[in-house]
Nucleic acid binder design. Structure first.
Lengths: 117, 117
DNA sequence: CCGCATCCCTTTGGATACTG
DNA sequence: CAGTATCCAAAGGGATGCGG
């Protein structure tokens, strides 16, 4: 952590790998779509249903919500639990461990935003 | 900092504020455009010029690079230093303190991505 | 050497309407 | 209750070419 600023040598902050350039972009891409982290955060607060999220974010439309939930499931950030199969269905979403860890970092980002806004 | 969360519903992870929903989105929006963090990361490694960045990212075009640099300056994540005014100009970009702190969080994000990929 | 103007294609987000 | 289909407007990213 004591390395000096010199072009081409090691970097100033404790960024571990220069392959960061490639990798972190994928992460950023996956978490930055609109509503995604809000939805995830809401789910983190407890098991919620589709309708719960609709109420929580009135200006979020159905098909975007459905799309985001699908992405979050695909990313394994949430789990879709079918409580009752037949209509009227009952489905709840649960957060996963990896998402909990992600939210810690997201919170750091939030803190950074507050500090420097 | 009032929370919309019901009393007793404790937050599963240690997210401090529920206003996170609004705020962190702005941060994510500002850091997620393509190339932006790569450019910032490169600048963090030492003072660099426009041409340095062009070489570092061959598939990055001039106008996108110019746009990103402008955004980074506007965000006060980098400083534009005019070394020589008249053509041929000489300009270097320097990282700011707030960007250094940001990069630490970005690195955490990177680590998270590596861990769970 | 350091960029911007213009044009264009792709991706994203959303409105409206409909189904199991 | 829990979504999907279709269509559409807006923003993002890039190629080409030019100017200070």
């Amino acid at each position: 952590m004591s390395s000096q600023l010199k072009p081409g040598t090691s970097n100033a902050c404790n960024i571990t790998s220069l392959s960061l350039a490639c990798e972190v972009n994928d992460v950023l891409r996956s978490i930055s779509p609109r509503w995604k982290m809000q939805i995830l955060h809401k789910i983190a607060a407890g098991h919620v249903q589709f309708s719960t999220l609709k109420q929580a974010f009135p200006s979020l439309s159905d098909q975007i919500l459905g799309k985001r939930l699908g992405e979050l499931v695909a990313d394994e950030l949430i789990l879709k639990v079918v409580v009752k199969e037949k209509p009227p269905q009952h489905i709840v979403y649960e957060i996963t461990d990896r998402a909990m860890e992600l939210l810690k970092v997201i919170d750091d980002l939030h803190q950074w935003g507050l500090k420097w806004s």
